[in-house]
Design a protein around this nucleic acid. Sequence first.
DNA 1: TTAGGGTTAG
Length: 572
Amino acid sequence: MPPPTTAGTLPNRALHARLLRSGALDADPSAAAPLAASAANSSLPYALSLLRAHPSTFSYNTAIRSLAHGPRPHLAVALYRSMLLGPLSNPNNYTYPPLLAACARLLPASSPTPAAAPGTAVHASLFRRGLDSRDRFIGASLLSFYAAAGDLPAARQVFDASPPGQRDLPLWNSLLHAHLSQGFYAHVLRLSRQMPAADEVTLLALVSACSHLGALDTGRWAHASYARTRRSTTRNLGTALLNMYMRCGDVESAWSVFRETLDKDVRTWSVMIAGLATNGLPRDALALFAEMKNTGVDPDSITMTAVLSACAHAGMVDEGKKFLDCMPVEYRVQPTIEHYGCVVDLLGRAGQLDEALALIKTVPFKADVVLWGALLVACRVHKNVDMGEMAAMEILKLDPQHAGACVFLSNVYADAGKWDLVQGVRSSMKEHKIYKPPGSSIVELNGVVYEFLSGDRSHPQSDRIYAMLDEICKTLSLKGHKPSTKEVTFDVDEEDKEVCISQHSEKLALALGLISTTRGDVIRIVKNLRICEDCHSVMKIVSEVYDRVIVVRDRNRFHHFKNGSCSCLDYW
DNA sequence: TTAGGGTTAG
């Protein structure tokens, strides 16, 4: 019998004694399983001695499972090792799914591959036993583990190695999620088309991929196909759908999903509030926040970020500051550095740069790149060169690779004609291999996604697109628009600079959009970088002259161009 | 014999 234990909470000794007295443990050692499982997390030495006295594969598996979902998952791996030592407890196909889940939980949240060692060792171990492709549960667990480790090729390999008969819906969904979590959104769309069936989990991944891509038509199609088969929208799918509509700039559809989603939780509300704030409807966002409080849902940290961002977008400086001050008491949400970032943005937009700087200096955290970055944007918009230079320097101290700060400095120096300093920034960027990713824009027309780079001529209708651009230019000059080439010096890449500003990717996307739509239509463009000043003013004029609503999602926010003005109120 | 895999939104 196992020695008495001294550590941890007390195991169920009464049960243990009963099992021993009745001889149940001798007749069937797996009778120890419930006891081993419950003891594993409270007193592992006790569980271990119990398992050693009455070894069975079943009991070990049960205890490993219990540890895998407990507070110290690494102990599941330890128990597995001791399981391998006993002759009467050989692992079987039930051993590995919980064990691999434990390995996935051991991975640090942020860093990918390196910490994958225990999981790959487990993979090797089950490979040696010939168990790796026999069982669909093991396959799915392995795939999920590699996905969690950020090793997409390995995840893919597990899928490819699994016999087609084992590729059931959960395995496919694991594969989708693996691509989603690594940012391969177009692959998610492609894979989902190859799937023999789809369920809610599939649609969640698909809709989420559409949000990232801004692929509204595909997202709508997914929504419609779901609506055909189900009665009501579940909370999770509803939240994912309205996030998708918001991130595609379709506020109306987001509202209708929001209304029909029953049983809304804090995430549902937060997504809606944040979406309204970033889509140029900050006052609606704040009104919705008030409604949320009335329904008794408590805001969390994310909700407060959305609320503060709404204040910033609405220029409601005093309200924003008040929310920041009262949130720990009134909403029991402790302000984080993100919240301070929103308020720096709020002050910066309002032109209160000194106060924004003062706030950065008093935040109870070490100021980060985001905080200084918010100030940098404000300095750029309000043309405060000295403070902007200081902010850029602070950013480069924290992140010497920060392209935005380099570009800002180079631009400031170029404006001032300090070419030696410009050269200095440029060569330092070259030395550190800092580059601005090439600008690209996506426009989705009739369900087909087109991508443009700057100066792109790869589109089959390229001639018509450039003819349209010419026409736009003529219209603009009639309207008195002068191209703002100021930001050309922002371009880091020499080649980029030579590409005329009139061929920026978002302008090409716009031209194709104009050719393919008629008056009153909506043109939706997704840009990977921040929209440049010239493109921004061109979009405004085009929205009026050609009578289109143009929705541009850039790196940070939405621009809804309509009747000659933009929802961002020219601050971005 | 008993038990095991996928889940999304800010």
